[in-house]
Amino acid sequence: MTMEIERSTTPGAAAALTQSEFAEIVSRVEENLGLVIRGKSESIRLVMVALLAGGHVLLEDVPGTGKTTLAKSLACSISGIFRRIQFTPDLLPADITGTSFYRPADGTFEFREGPVFANVLLADEINRTSPRTQSALLEVMSENQITIEGRRKDLPQPFFVIATQNPTEFHGTYPLPEAQLDRFAVRVTMGYPDIAHEMEILTSHHDHDPFDALKPRVNGEDILAMQERVKTIKFDTSVAEYVLKIVDATRKDARLRLGVSPRGSLTLYRTAQARAAIDGRDFVLPEDVRALAIPVLAHRIMLDTKAKYGGVQPNQVIEEILETVAAPR
């Protein structure tokens, strides 16, 4: 089922969604996703946080861990349009955004929308296509609109991209550089499920596909309202300072060639609000910032050569920074 939802511009829509309604919707969606994706509640939560913060997700994982399933399930849960782009080296930017076709019958050009016109877009193996094609998608992600032949076209709302990248293959790939990874709100690694949950997967797929049993749990309008509500979550000055101190520490760390950008600090700010909202609070705690620091910041920093070849990992750097920056109390 697909429905294109107009972007809500009614300010009152946000206020109409109470905290309990918000939490209830989130719970329904997560429960829905949990029917298909077993044992990955933390990953599901991160995806929800990114969605409600208005950001996009980068799933970095080996094949077969449920990335496509997660994207399709999410699209189904929010009754949105789901499109998938399988990136290949010969993909062109127009294959993403759409192209104009000439109609000889009446001598006009007809624009055919590309797969980017969707609510949930799965950009599979984004590192397999050329940087030019990658840029086309990334530009769309940041602008939420496309300009083709001088005409502006808005993307449907909500617009949510889940991009995937296989971290183990290097031949014939164009890994996204850190400067472009910055466009993704969070980077999630799902990993293999543990034995108990994998057994549940096997059991649930015994004679049917659990995906077929999924039903929409929320519409796009509610998602937009939830995104607006997230923006109203209180953010104390001291917690904002905490965010900035963490980000500042990444800019001053001797092991990093590139620290977190202001886009990163804003994303951490917004995702912390989303997490607080999902937790049923109308204010952000330092715990929210700490819990999201690694998924939100680790892919935005660049290690210097010595640290990289010394075996230092970006996650480790963020962890150590979190242990050295005092939390407000």
Partner: peptide, 10 residues
């Protein structure tokens, strides 16, 4: 890296 104190906050 330095340890920042609680008193650095508002």
């Amino acid at each position: 890296r330095t340890v920042l104190r609680e008193s650095d906050y508002t």
